[in-house]
Amino acid sequence: MSGLLVLRAGALTTVQDRGRPGLAHLGVPRSGALDAGARALANRLVGNAADAAVLETTLDGVALRARAPVTVAVTGAPCAVRVSGRPAAWGAPVRLRAGAELDVGRAESGLRSYVAVRGGFAVPPVLGSRSTDLLSGLGPAVLSAGTVLPVGGAWIGPVRGAGALGVPGPPSVLVLPLRLGPRADWFEAASIARLLRSPYRVSARSNRIGLRTEGGPRLARRRGGELPSEGMVLGAVQVPPDGLPVLFLADHPVTGGYPVLGVVPSGRPLNAAAQAVPGLEVRFVSA
């Protein structure tokens, strides 16, 4: 017996690696872990390659039973980690004996925790990736209790003793640097200026496809009509007819017909967006 048995799947837990970049021309979304920094750290802690497949939880964690001895690490949203009922370290390698139960608790701040296992989760890849893509349905199913997750051989180095100290926790305000374009000229300049000095909130309707905003001023268009569908990038801030900006995350559609006001660069700002809980204040700043 090997692998990890899912005891409690949590609200929404998926397998994620770096996704499927390079296939957008076939209509395939990029997908992949939303908080790429937390995924890389979890993998580093257990000695994996940075893009080995991990678990991405949403809000209330996950519980697994090791069917053989494994080493795991939990990063991303800080949470209580327990091994067979006893407190264990968050942000550090944790050894599980055969039969031990890992419980990744509810996020204390932030939204998404990441669980890496030494060797990586070895579910069958689709188009070169083990990521679940919730928009197009590619990749493994969302985790459910009773599923056994196989463990692969994706380690490249030793388990690291160093933990996640020094990694900034989820922020109290989500600051999104916005580089205007390519369709900023579709909006009233005064309306863009208002956006840049007004707070918005993260909407509860946000998901892996996009972070929706609410509570701020609605963007006013200076030109009507429809935009013919065009290619969309990760971090694009699209403005649908209701005028409230939507930040495109990893499972975003490859093309879209609403104008893109600006783009938030990947890296830290998008990692922070992955941890933004509904109701959190959002500020767009000029970049």
Binding site: P21, G22, L23, A24, H25, P228, S229, E230, G231, M232, V233, V254, T255
Partner: peptide, 15 residues
């Protein structure tokens, strides 16, 4: 370039 994405009136070069 990572992605070359044609669409209705545009081609996107990403990466």
């Amino acid at each position: 370039v990572r992605d070359i994405v044609p669409a209705a009136r545009t081609v996107l070069l990403d990466g």
